[in-house]
């Protein structure tokens, strides 16, 4: 796969404050890329640099191998976290205006808007005033104008905020569909469950530095501790003590209908989960045996906390 966006050693300071410190990222075509980080980490600055709203002090950004230029803005669709619409304009004319700013002709924009309005079930909103819309309704309009010009690169900053679960799902499906149609998506959010669900690669930024980046599954493999959560109805009461003697064991809890012994067992590098399982089978009825894989949430908290210490 080739790279759509390459960020090389980008640094940006505002007065004494460093917003980004030599941050490099590679985003491959056709991916959903999760840009994560706590508040104030520098994500928005990075996104603004990609959108040419802010100019970096040093470093380069390449889109499709070319250094960013003015004409690239029509290849990017950006849904900022702080988003609004002109209150005094009607939905239709506002969407047309924003689409024309991205270089679409009026007739083309109208045609596409009709399709998208149908798709998001807002076909009859054309003449509504923005003031009449609820927050979620306005978000739909903003989503449409972000994707309307069919950009190669889509940047969504907290796209689901303000949506009810049904509409959030509708938008999520549209994002996946856009990816299938060939778009690359940068997805910035604090909602880790949507990161798990959608993202292929992620990068974690904290205090203006990039801490980790790469394929989400690879990162999980790096962060996994070879720990297994087990549930067993033991044959003898001595099992717990026996396990503690042989393995690195810690208490755990999960929902179950059995009255069983629940433990986390951390294996050494030279220990094999199959051996553990075989050993357990001889000791009782194994009802639960799962490898503990760190969630994006765990990775986020662990990495940021380590960075703070």
């Amino acid at each position: 796969m080739s790279k759509l966006l390459q960020v090389n050693q980008v640094t940006k300071t505002f007065g004494n404050h460093t917003a980004l410190n030599k941050v490099s990222l590679d985003i491959e075509k056709g991916q959903i890329f999760g840009l994560l980080g706590p508040n104030g980490a520098g994500k928005t600055t990075l996104i603004r640099i990609i959108n040419q709203i802010t100019i970096p002090d040093s470093g380069t950004v390449l889109l499709d191998g070319e250094a960013l230029q003015a004409h690239h803005i029509k290849n990017i669709g950006y849904l900022p976290e702080e988003r609004g619409l002109y209150k005094s304009m009607k939905v239709g004319e506002q969407a047309l205006y924003l689409a024309q700013l991205k270089g679409l002709s009026k007739t083309e924009a109208k045609k596409r808007l009709k399709i998208w309005f149908e798709r998001l079930e807002i076909g009859n909103w054309w003449d509504k005033k923005i003031q009449e819309l609820s927050k979620g309704m306005a978000q739909k309009i903003q989503f449409v104008v972000t994707v309307l010009h069919e950009p190669k690169l889509l940047i969504f900053d907290e796209p689901f905020s303000g949506f009810d679960p049904i509409n959030a799902n509708l938008i999520k499906d549209q994002i996946l569909r856009l990816r299938e149609d060939g778009a690359t998506v940068i997805f910035s959010t604090h909602r880790m469950e949507s990161v798990e669900e959608l993202c292929d690669d992620i990068a974690l930024i904290d205090k203006s530095n990039k801490l980790i980046d790469g394929n989400l599954l690879d990162i999980k493999r790096q962060f996994k501790t070879n720990t297994y959560q087990i549930g067993i109805v033991p044959n003898s009461t001595s099992l717990e003590a026996e396990l503690k003697a042989n393995f690195d064991v810690s208490p755990t809890q999960f929902k179950s209908i059995n009255n069983e012994l629940q433990l986390n067992v951390k294996l050494e590098v030279n220990q094999n989960p199959n051996d553990l399982l075989q050993y357990l089978i001889t000791k009782g009825n194994v009802s639960h045996f799962v490898e503990l894989i760190p969630s994006a949430n765990d990775i986020f908290i662990q990495t940021v906390n380590n960075n703070n210490n």
Partner: peptide, 17 residues
């Protein structure tokens, strides 16, 4: 000021100088 308070500014500014 209206563009700032209605928060449309960032959307616009990502398309125009």
């Amino acid at each position: 000021i209206e563009e700032k308070t209605s928060r449309i500014i960032e959307v616009i500014i990502s398309s125009v100088k």
